[in-house]
Write a protein that binds this DNA or RNA. Structure first.
Lengths: 215, 215
DNA sequence: CTATGTCAGTTGCAAATGCAACTATTTTAA
DNA sequence: TTAAAATAGTTGCATTTGCAACTGACATAG
């Protein structure tokens, strides 16, 4: 468990001492499994695997609200309270999740947790990263056209990967749920972009041919 | 300056001691002014007023990416790195902004800053709130239709205000930039909703008549 | 007082997108 | 190894949305 970023710079002995304080519980999930019964004040930390926050609308739309990788966090605390549809937390790969008591983390502990402040510092770094990810997400969703959503998303992936031939980390069907557009409309747009020579693509493999500096 | 949340539970003397450490600089801006020359590692804290992060697209669209109220934070650190368009930080009201050195905040300080850990704790709380705000933003933008964007937004404002007759904190023109839709299309949709008896509205005053439990 | 600008509101028309209903291909599970 | 699912891809048609170009109301500055 010590390889989670939240415990960076804390010794194993200390971690074990703290586990009681935080009511830390680890659980493994298999791909496709739903994470249920999260308590109000509980914080989930993705130790390994990928977790997706998915909303199923009343009118049948599926939306991937958030995709959380290793060292990412989730919890009712971070949820939008306005969400009326059915929001589920689904493991898209095999996962190990650690749950801790958030209140205990943020408040000063009276026990012998010497490294409590280190923990909060680590937490700050993790939450900051979450903010940046969410900003990226807003950046993509704020684009007015399907093509610009795709281009913004491709640029993002390409920047992370440091190359122009990328492999989309979603099935194309899931990508449309992430971009919040119709799947067939998205595929049609990708076809157009292929025909116009902007990209090359086969299924999840996309090569960016357009000039990234213009977009 | 002590009334900023980042200094909660820290004495005035301590704050003054710390100001040097963090290279804290306060500046006042008037409504409409642009905040320029933010250094890479600098963090802006909105002491008073409202700041908007605005993107001007190559094709003339204006997008309000983020709206930051009192105690909110901004900075290049939190920006989407993929943003190629012209992104500006604009004070939508008179503002007082405090800039501090973020690296210094996150790293352990060797000076006599006793309450440094309190500061980090406060910062965690502020960044967490930013995450929640961004999640709400994603929630609105992820809606597939203009009407659902409006309803999700109205519900959000109504929930915050605790009542069904709300006053939109934007001009309607700015609201369309926030929802990332065309202004005339938005007004047309609001008109339809009025005609269908879902809402009552005159300019920025909106009364929710639909059953919020269905949306 | 007048001009200039911002804001709210409207509408016709064109373009983009969603919906539905398919086929073909690949993966997964029995 | 075969059947069932999931994924990728396509297309016609309906609907939604964006664009452009207005009007009228109101506020602000000179």
């Amino acid at each position: 468990m010590s390889e989670t970023r939240i415990f960076d710079n804390i010794t194993n002995e200390e971690i074990n001492q703290m586990k009681n304080c935080f009511k830390a519980v680890s659980r493994k999930y298999i791909a496709g499994e739903t994470i249920n019964n999260i308590e109000e004040g509980s914080l989930g930390i993705v130790v390994s695997g990928v977790v997706e926050i998915i909303r199923f609308d009343f009118d049948g739309n599926r939306t991937i609200l958030e995709r959380i990788n290793e060292n990412g966090i989730f919890g009712k605390l971070f949820f939008s309270k306005i969400d009326e549809g059915d929001v589920q937390i689904i493991c898209s790969t095999d996962c190990e999740i650690m749950f801790i008591d958030y209140d205990h983390l943020t408040k000063q502990c009276h026990n012998a947790c010497n490294h409590h402040s280190t923990l909060i510092r680590n937490m700050l770094s993790i939450v900051s990263e979450k903010s940046i990810k969410l900003s990226n997400r807003v950046e993509v969703l704020s684009q007015r056209t399907l093509r610009k959503k795709l281009i913004t998303y491709f640029n993002m992936i390409a920047k992370e990967a440091g190359k122009k031939n990328i492999i989309i980390p979603f099935s194309l069907s899931n990508l449309s749920d992430y971009l919040c557009v119709d799947r067939s409309a998205m595929l049609r747009e990708m076809k157009k972009m292929r025909e116009e020579g902007l990209i090359d693509s086969h299924a999840k493999k996309v090569t960016i041919l357009y000039d990234q500096s213009i977009y």
